[in-house]
Design a protein around this nucleic acid. Structure first.
Lengths: 86, 86, 86, 86
DNA sequence: GTTGATCTTATTTCTC
DNA sequence: GAGAAATAAGATCAAC
């Protein structure tokens, strides 16, 4: 960050900026960690013998379903059965 | 994933599948929440008067800088080994 | 894309489609050739005794540096406008 | 590039290294340009009224086909007809 | 309402 | 062949 560029910001504004950047970077770090945990789950599932491509499809279908349950009834039923839920 | 493929999973395997799906969905929920928090920070910053486009650039630049710094740490050593010399 | 959808395209449109597909395929072929040339350069470098892993890092670092420089050019100006100051 | 790190390379080797890096960077630039040209073709096709999603599928199918012609005969016939080729 | 930007997912590619 | 990285594709959302 180039000091000369922000010299004429008030100290309060500069402080606000610093905090904002810090918060965003911390949250992005968190997000990254969660994303890595998800990858780990998929890796474990694969090691266990699941087809991760199919697994991803299931997740996606269930996600669509949550938003759109009414229009997708047949599909819903299909994958609920697939997951062994009745 | 088709019905016939699933039907003869053992109950243990089906249980494992259920747990895997549940874990992934929970983590994706977490990730989504963090993403929303990030959006909120940007919204607040905008309300405060910051230019969010520029703010995003700052974040991005700092990320590049960090990658750059990390890489440069490895680099002196690497160059020597790397360029065919010891 | 289904048959019935295509059948009643005009000949002019079909010709346009053919040309479009041909152009894309030619360009993808070109891209593939260039990628192969890059691989060859790395292979030659390796044969010459260079450590290709390090070479790749050099290329990558220079790319980051370039992105960094480009971004920094925009940055002074951007910061000022950006951070809510004129 | 840190001079002190490569000082003890012979001038010939350094020159070779420079040329290698330059060649790779030039080729990567070329590759990038070709990729941009492909994007342009898709943009033009879209402006013309083609469904780019379908277009991408056609390209993909034809690519698979090239590698795998025998196993894909019915599919092949379908999209050859679709493209108006007999 | 359409382009543009961002973010995420998916596929491919490369290396080990 | 498996894991990581690069590239491409698709989806989403804001801005003009």
């Amino acid at each position: 960050m180039d000091d000369s560029a922000i010299t004429h910001l008030t100290e309060a504004t500069r402080e606000k900026l610093r905090q904002t950047v810090a918060k965003i970077e911390r949250l992005e770090e968190e997000k990254k960690e969660v994303a890595e945990q998800i990858k780990e789950i998929y890796a474990e599932a694969k090691a266990f013998g699941f087809d991760t491509k199919a697994l991803r499809q299931v997740i996606k279908l269930r996600k669509i379903d949550k938003a759109d349950r009414d229009e997708q009834e047949m599909m819903l039923e299909t994958y609920l059965i697939a997951l062994g839920e009745e």
